[in-house]
């Protein structure tokens, strides 16, 4: 999939590019309002990531342009302005999602995956892992045709790890995805571990969970 990143902070743009490349996205970069609009005129993209505060124009105006030249693309607004007003006007203009800086690249990727599923009608088949089938869209985990009950948070945790398989996810990354960014100042506590313990317990009743690894001092990983 083709992604245009319109972000005036070059280092940040490069980091986003580096991350997305690993997940097989093809990225173009634009560091100003003008070059962003130019790129949009020249190419067709699947995703456009727009930073709202550009040196030579308002990101919301880029969005207006883009909706004309790339009507089929999905738009994600990225901003440090977490003002309610900006958020509403961004979504009004047809942005598909909204991310406040600073965000985890993991979070960006999973938002993009969610949009892709919704917008481009990509239906993923249930992912099989070990003896289990995980249907992310329908939020179902089955084993030997039997479904296993998970709480909302537990399923969110499991599916997030699964979507970023073969990657170590830190507790902070998991916490921010599941509990959001509102100020909770002690993610160091072991509630993520408690949830993982519960997940393992429920899964172990049916099969092995060797694929769900604990990486000491770092976090968790699903290896597949």
């Amino acid at each position: 999939m083709k992604v245009l990143i319109i972000e005036d902070e070059k280092t940040l743009a490069y980091e986003m590019e580096a991350f997305l490349k690993k997940s097989f996205y093809v990225c173009d970069l634009a560091h100003s309002f003008r070059s962003g609009v130019e790129q949009l005129e020249l190419n067709q993209y699947d995703f456009v990531l727009i930073d709202l505060s550009l040196p030579d124009g308002d990101g919301l105006d880029v969005l207006k342009h883009a909706k004309k030249s790339n009507p089929g693309a999905a738009y994600i607004i990225i901003t440090a302005r977490t003002n309610l007003k900006d958020r509403v006007s961004g979504l009004d203009l047809g942005a598909d999602d909204y991310l406040a800086k600073p965000f985890y690249l993991l979070e960006l990727q999973s938002r993009m995956q969610a949009i892709a599923r919704r917008k481009f009608n990509i239906t993923e088949e249930a992912i099989s892992i070990g003896e289990f089938q995980v249907d992310i869209q329908n939020r179902l985990v089955t084993c030997d045709g039997q479904s296993i009950e998970f709480s909302r948070k537990e399923f969110d945790l499991l599916s997030y790890l699964l979507l970023h398989k073969n990657r170590v996810l830190t507790r902070a990354q998991l916490s921010e995805h599941i509990w959001g960014t509102f100020v909770n100042d002690d993610y160091d506590s072991n509630y993520i571990d408690a949830h993982i313990k519960n997940i393992r317990k429920k899964l172990n009743a049916c099969g092995s969970t060797e694929w769900l690894e604990t990486v000491r001092g770092v976090g968790y990983r699903i290896r597949k």
Binding site: E9, A100, K101, L105
Partner: peptide, 17 residues
Amino acid sequence: LMTPISILQNKLENFLA
């Protein structure tokens, strides 16, 4: 403030991977 924090966070995130 958020932009430099963003850069640090994303760089470290990429580094960890």
